[in-house]
Design a protein around this nucleic acid. Structure first.
Lengths: 371, 371
DNA sequence: GCGGCGAATGTAAGCGCTTACTCATCTCCG
DNA sequence: CGGAGATGAGTAAGCGCTTACATTCGCCGC
């Protein structure tokens, strides 16, 4: 399709993994120049290490003048505390982990970014990993994060391998499931009711007169959110005496091309063509929309399309996408609030509900009516 | 523009920060159930801690049978090594840092994800932070990462505050600048020549007959890549006796709406309207394209648009975007290779050039010709 | 004038691991 | 058959901090 034209000039063209180099680096032994330690600071300031530690940790209890002297020593020596030593002695690493399904879905990336901002405020670092929606991999990642001594961890969804919960509980590590809300959940969570949003979105399409509704859903294996969204849609249809047969639900990961691909499969299916397609997330929905348009259909004239998430593109593409707005920054910020509170021994609400609202735009219209 | 319609049902609708809770958590003292330590494992296996350590670190030197016995003890106790202790004793944290400009630009998120994958293979964790293109903030983040004991760090671009380089060098921490390549650079780098890609892209448009070329560039303050792309474009124009006056370059962050906004400003400027606009990255370019289309222009008929990066959307949107394909996964994977090699004392090439190719698609056409 | 108290600081015991050394066997040759 | 060299395992000294506990000292009330 796309012509690839190299107009490169001057720079040699190395293939993947072929590289240029100027010189080889010699091994730099760690430990080269031993950095200043607490002891050095203490010596220079003429106090004990305990006092320096107190100053650094702002525990009050220190004479103003002594504090100043220490601060000067710290500055003069360019002293940088050694986190591992601190973690070992205090049994706190001041790092929090987050395992996300996929960083390359912008909605998740935004969440991670929001969490990082929140944690930065409280002086925590953020260790990330992406599980690619594979539970086994998630477990492994949680495990290595636990080894790394994270103080708390943010998870996505609530269907995790039992070992994940067991490990976290055994180690007394605070955790929270995000993107989901269930008042009756046994685990802390912060998010919204995915099934309900699916239900609402389907209701809206039904109200527009659509009867032939299909979905390009996310892959449900190990993904409770995808599952629940489908469940909600199916329930809404059932409530009106309609059905959501398997052939009307195709599962795809989460890219634009997955969405395009999904629509082609739906159209190849048996029975009447759907008049409305719900994407399991905006990327899928937009993929569906682009595929429809590029195969000559108009949206929403010939096909209504809706999604979940409300990524930036949803509001900007033409036609703008009707979708469920997910307050991802809020979810992750609140999750950060929760984790920090738990670490620091403050009480925290462990079931937080946020609202994911339907945002009607131009990609949906009455069934049958052309635009 | 967009109607917001709440069809929420059942779930109360808390405003941002308003939350529901089921019960308050009691403080869980850390240290609750002291986890098994090396010593416990040693005891159970009837060996010394040194032996257990050797087994865990696969240093050979251990009898097969002893090894098995230790492994059993580890499993039986559910032993998880304590990374901080390990880091303190070995002076290696097995974590690497990455500070990116913005995680919510999908191209960067993909890079981080690729890096994480690479590091996972070698057993390293990834600490992330996003600087929002603010040098001061980057410095602060590098500093806290250094405190956290990262073994190495990946940076974006090559214009960092001198304190950043100084700190890293003083601490003997390996680092690499990504997204840039300069054979003569004093710092390790892995990427491509941004100026050259700007030059190539402009040449291509000039070859199509465009003379009125404008840019919606990234914000240049503290961003060498944005600066160099502009520089390349300007050089190409100059080489053909043309000019790139300040009014023809507007700077915007990196979102779709920034792109739309940028085009409006360009159109409001003096002189003839540009016939081709280059976006400082694909998000900006696509924003430009959407704005043009939604204000009644056709792309590429009335306006040619091109970008940099080649995000997934570029190939899928209509018309598909002509852009510079940036091999971000390769860049970050190679950067990971480099950092791991340096940490482990292996030699590594410290100037790696990759190619960023022009990919011609449908958003550009001959000047004057409608489609 | 003395016991007592609180504030400011020092002392030192670890936190859980790695690793340089040491030591005991065992193997293999001359 | 003695000793050099391997090999496998143990001993113990930290790594750089935090923190419980001890100490010092000035000051107050009676």
């Amino acid at each position: 399709m796309a012509t690839v034209l190299s107009v490169d000039r001057g720079v040699p063209c190395p293939a993947w993994k072929q590289v240029l180099s100027k010189r080889l680096q010699k091994r730099t032994p760690r430990n080269d120049r031993p950095s200043a330690t607490l002891k050095d600071v203490a010596q220079r300031a003429g106090v004990s290490t305990a006092t320096v530690s107190r100053v650094l940790n702002a525990q009050g209890k220190v004479n103003r003048e002594t504090g100043t002297r220490v601060a000067e020593a710290v500055a003069a020596l360019g002293y940088v505390p050694h986190a591992a030593a601190r973690a070992l002695a205090s049994r706190r690493s001041r790092t929090i982990g987050a395992v996300t399904a996929a960083l390359d879905n912008p909605i998740f990336a935004r969440g991670i970014q929001a969490l990082e901002h929140r944690l930065e405020l409280s002086g925590y670092g953020l260790l990330v990993a992406s599980s690619n929606y594979e539970p086994e991999r998630e477990l492994k990642q949680v495990r290595t994060m636990v080894e790394r001594g994270i103080d708390a961890i943010m998870l996505q969804g609530d269907s995790h391998l039992p070992e994940v919960y067991a490990l976290l509980q055994r180690k007394g590590i605070a955790y929270i499931n995000t993107w989901v809300y269930d008042a009756a959940a046994t685990h802390p969570c912060c998010g919204f009711n995915n099934e309900l949003t699916g239900h609402n979105l389907a209701d809206y399409l039904l109200d527009l007169g659509h009867r032939e509704i299909a979905m390009v859903a996310g892959v449900t294996a190990g993904n409770d959110r995808a599952r629940n969204r489908i469940k909600g849609v199916a329930a809404a249809l059932r409530a009106r005496g309609l059905d959501l047969p398997p052939a009307r639900v195709v599962e795809r990961p989460y890219s634009l091309s997955d969405g395009r691909d999904g629509l082609r499969e739906l159209f190849a299916g048996p029975g009447p063509r759907p008049t409305a397609v719900i994407g399991g997330n905006d990327l899928l929905a937009i993929g569906v929309m682009l595929e429809a348009q590029q195969s000559g259909l108009t949206v929403p004239g010939d096909l209504s399309v809706a999604g979940f998430d409300d990524i930036e593109l949803a509001a900007n593409i033409a036609p703008a996408l009707t979708t469920i707005h997910v307050p991802v920054e809020e979810i992750c910020t609140l999750a950060g609030d929760y984790l920090v509170a738990r670490i620091e021994g403050r009480p925290a609400r462990d079931h937080v509900a946020l609202e994911a609202r339907l945002v009607v735009r131009q990609s949906t219209a009455r069934a049958g009516g052309r635009a």
